[in-house]
Simulated assay, not measured.
Amino acid sequence: MSFFLFLCFITLLFVPSFHASDTDQDQDSGNTHAILPRSDIDLLEFPLNLEYFEAEFFLWGALGYGLDVADPALAFGGPSPVGPKRARLSPLIRDIIAQFAYQEIGHLRAIKSAVRGFPRPLLNLTKESFATVMNSAFGRPLIPPFDPYANEINYLLASYVIPYVGLTGYVGANAKLLTPRAKRLVAGLLGVESGQDAVIRTLLYERSLTKVKPYGVTVAEFTDKISLLRNKLGGEGLKDEGLIVGKAWGAEGMIRGNVLAGNKFSISYGRTPEEILRIVYGGGNERRPGGFYPKGADGRIARSHLI
């Protein structure tokens, strides 16, 4: 009998133990935030600011309505965005953007299954807001003012403006996360976000030498100007590249085409929350809301700078 008990003891030592924090049931319950460290919660909540933006911009652009129709509960009672509307898109591009929109809804659900989250912040998605970005990128007013909803090329260029910023945020956050659960979630989000960015860049690359009417500037030049602006606003050096670069900056220093942005090893760039706020606020200062977030972003990280 004592030998039997000894065998049972040895067996128990080598049987894997399963904790609530490792089960899908716990993640789906919405209580995961209770077992994550504070720093992981903050880093998982911050991207909601960009996910709200992308969900609203893609929903409105493709379908002509936003979260208030698609899933009001996900907005957590936050104010409706200002100024978005249905864009003039071909059936193919409308279908792609609609896919992105539903993916962003999924991302909101995924993040809120892990952390409590916060209400949708006020978003300025007016054509004037995008026009301001483009004017800043070119260092002069574009005439007529840029309208992201006017046509397909304009909408794709507008889609180039912010979603990539969220991608770099996930890359930057991943190294700072402490728990496997948070890292798994961010890796999964990053996979789809990077795929969306690749599709947007590829669609634009096909049109890279097309001149954007009526400005007489090519699509490639637009992306270059936008990337230069984001580097400037972020304030931390080169973390952004347009569709066509000098050969020395292309993959392995061998090619000018730049469908995917990356460093000299073709590794994605990462940004901190502070860099992202400087960009999306439009003024290069994480303490001064503006741009697409007139009242500021939300979450502990963003709020900590609004003092």
Rank of each mutant, 00 (worst) to 15 (best):
M1D: 00
M1C: 00
F3Y: 00
F6L: 00
H19R: 15
D24W: 13
D24G: 01
Q25G: 00
D28L: 15
H33A: 14
S39A: 15
I41E: 11
L43P: 10
E45A: 12
F46G: 07
F53I: 04
F53K: 05
E56W: 01
F58G: 00
F58I: 01
A62D: 02
G64H: 07
L67W: 07
V69T: 08
A73R: 05
A75I: 07
G77E: 04
P79K: 10
S80D: 12
S80W: 07
P81I: 02
P81F: 04
A101E: 06
Q103N: 11
E104T: 01
G106L: 01
H107S: 02
L108G: 03
R109F: 06
A110D: 10
A110I: 03
I111N: 03
I111H: 05
K112N: 07
G117S: 11
F118H: 07
F118E: 06
L122Q: 15
L122K: 15
L123N: 10
S136E: 12
P145K: 00
N151E: 05
Y155D: 04
L157K: 02
V161L: 13
V161F: 14
V161H: 11
I162C: 03
G166F: 02
L167D: 06
G169I: 05
G172C: 04
N174K: 12
A175L: 09
K176M: 12
R181V: 09
K183V: 00
L185Y: 01
L185W: 01
Q196H: 15
Q196G: 04
I200S: 02
T202V: 03
S208T: 11
T210A: 14
Y215G: 09
V217T: 15
D224Q: 15
I226Y: 07
L229V: 10
L233W: 10
G235C: 10
G235S: 09
K239G: 14
D240M: 13
L243I: 03
V245A: 04
V245E: 05
W249L: 13
G250L: 09
E252Y: 12
G257L: 07
G257A: 15
N258M: 04
L260K: 12
A261V: 13
S266F: 11
I267L: 12
G270H: 04
R271H: 06
T272R: 07
E275V: 04
I279K: 07
I279Q: 09
I279M: 13
Y281H: 13
G282D: 09
G283A: 10
E286T: 08
F292D: 09
G299I: 13
A302H: 05
